[in-house]
Structures are given as structure tokens and as C-alpha cells.
Amino acid sequence: MIRVARQVGLIVGLPAVIFTAWWLATADSENFYFPPLSAILEAFGEVWTGRRLADDVLPSVARLAVGYLAALALGVGLGVVIGSYRRVRAATEPVLEFLRAIPPPVLVPVIMLFAGIGDGMKVLVIVCGCIWPILLNTVEGVRAVDGVLAEATRSYGIRGFGRLRHLVLGSASPQIFAGARQALSIGIILMVISEMFAASNGLGFAIVQFQRTFAISEMWSGILLLGLLGFTLSLVLRAVEARALAWYHGLRRTQRSS
């Protein structure tokens, strides 16, 4: 119980301090562009609990989920193939390094040319940005598979899907999750950026509309919502990681205590 309370305190402690400092620093603010936190929270309750929840928040979350999961599947699948075969890795590495160096937001106008301005474009932008940390971490994780364990699986006749699941993906899973954490923050950024281009709904679209109409408190409330969304999704991913990598974290605790 004490350990759980300590973890909860670590999670909510710093955000509570930041919100308290924000509240006190802006309590008497008369600056049009930096309204009091109380006004932002009031606007938050009015804007994001009504029609905009269904019109803007849910479509954004749906696009992010589809793009992120597609990038996860593609990144892990291609990463396993590239990491498992030296010749494939040698042939694709220059191309991967070239493509990785291109900032995904730059691709938005290009993708719009052949994917239009619908949801497909926004999902594709998210995929193009999220795939790289997942792919590259998967490649490195597969390359780092223990040679002794690989030889043991061959000796016991473990091949095909069994070898892929228990050896390759099992050994690479810590680095895959590291790439997934990086990709999540990138996905949220690209979700917002893609919705700022020729969109009719979404969080990015709503924030830009508030800025253009000088609804400053509403604009700040949208930014606050994005932060809360990222924080919540990060907690969900952490929970999935803790369950999937229970063996890995247990092994590390054992190694530290020995």
C-alpha cells in the first residue's frame, strides 16, 4: 500500500505543483493573451464537455489510434525482417537513414496531393512519423538477441512462429516498447499538425479556430486538453508495458538486489 501511494504521489505530485504555481502566477492576470487559470478551466468545462467532445476530440483520438497502431504493426513487422537478415539490413539502412531524416510535418503538403484532405491523409501523416522510432528500435532489439539463446532454440527444434514469438519478439520487446513510447508523443504532435491543414474538425482545427477568433481562454483550454490526453495515453502505455514486460522488470530487480 505504501509503495502504491508513493507511485501515485510521484505521478501526480509534479503536475499538482505546476498547476498550483500556474494558478497563483496568473490569479490577478489582466493580460489578454495569458488569462487566469481559473478562466481557462471554466472555458475547458464549457467547451470540451459538450458538442465538441464528439465533433473534435473523438475524431482526433480515432485518427491517432488508427495511425499509431498501423505504425506499430508496420514498424515491428519490418523491423523483425530487417533485423533478422544481414543482407536486407545492409541494403535498406541507407534508405532508412535518409527517410528518417525528413521531418514528418514537411510531408503533409506532399501527402495531401495524392491522399486528399480527408481522414486518410491525417492517418498517413501519423504513420509516417510514428513508424521510425518503432522500426529502428525493433531492428536493434532483434540484432541484440542473445546468441546462446538462439543456439538453444535451434538445439531444441524451436522454429517458425514459436521462435519468432518466444525468442525474437521476447528479446526485442524492451526496445520495441521504448520505440513505442517515443512514437506516441510524435503521433500526438502529428495529429495536431495534420488537423491544422484543410481540416473541418479535430483538436488541431479547433485550437486554430479559437486562435483566429481571439477566443484565448478556449485556445488555452484546447492546449491543456492535449496535455491531459498525452498524459493519459502515456499512463495507458505504461500499464500495458508493465504487464507485457513483467518478466523483464522482475529480472532487472533481481539483478540489482543480487
Rank of each mutant, 00 (worst) to 15 (best):
Thr20Pro: 09
Leu224Ser: 05
Leu78Thr: 06
Ser155Gly: 15
Glu195Val: 11
Gly116Ile: 01
Ala65Val: 12
Lys122Asp: 00
Arg238Met: 15
Ala215Tyr: 07
Val148Leu: 15
Ala71Ser: 14
Leu58Val: 11
Thr26Tyr: 13
Leu203Met: 14
Phe44Lys: 13
Ser155Trp: 06
Leu96Pro: 05
Val17Glu: 06
Leu10Met: 09
Leu226Val: 02
Thr254Leu: 11
Val95Leu: 14
Gly75Ile: 12
Val106Met: 09
Glu46Asn: 10
Leu64Asn: 03
Gly250Ala: 13
Lys122Gly: 00
Ala239Trp: 12
Ile102Asn: 02
Leu14Asp: 01
Phe205Ser: 07
Met196Phe: 08
Arg3Met: 06
Asn31Ala: 10
Gly45Arg: 12
Phe44Gln: 13
Arg143Ala: 10
Ile11Phe: 05
Leu78Ile: 10
Ala65Pro: 09
Asn31Arg: 13
Trp23Phe: 13
Arg165Glu: 13
Ala183Asn: 07
Ser60Ala: 08
Val139Ile: 15
Glu30Tyr: 11
Ala215Ser: 07
Gly129Tyr: 00
Ala239Met: 11
Lys122Asn: 01
Arg253Met: 14
Gly204Ile: 06
Gln7Tyr: 10
Leu251Arg: 14
Arg3Pro: 08
Ile117Gly: 02
Val17Tyr: 07
Gly230Met: 10
Arg143Phe: 04
Pro109Trp: 01
Met112Arg: 09
Leu184His: 03
Gly50Met: 08
Asp119Lys: 07
Val110Met: 13
Ala91Lys: 03
Ala65Lys: 03
Val127Arg: 00
Pro15Lys: 00
Ile188Ser: 11
Ala65Asp: 00
Gln182Asn: 08
Ile158Gln: 15
Ile2Lys: 15
Ala54Gln: 07
Ser221Asn: 10
Gly160Trp: 06
Val57Tyr: 11
Leu135Glu: 04
Val108Gly: 03
Ala172Trp: 11
Ala144Tyr: 04
Ile111Val: 15
Leu169Asp: 13
Arg163Leu: 04
His166Ala: 07
Asp146Asn: 14
Leu251His: 05
Asp55Met: 11
Trp48Asp: 05
Val125Gln: 00
Ile102Lys: 00
Gly118Val: 01
Ala62Pro: 03
Gln255Glu: 07
Leu167Cys: 09
Ile11Cys: 00
Leu233Lys: 01
Ser234Arg: 03
Trp22Ala: 08
Phe44Tyr: 14
Phe19Lys: 04
Glu46Arg: 15
Gly222Asn: 08
Asp56Val: 06
Phe98His: 03
Gly202Ala: 07
Arg52His: 14
Val61Ile: 14
Arg89Ala: 09
Phe177Val: 06
Leu225Pro: 14
Leu135Ser: 03
Pro94Cys: 03
Ile193Met: 10
Gly160His: 06
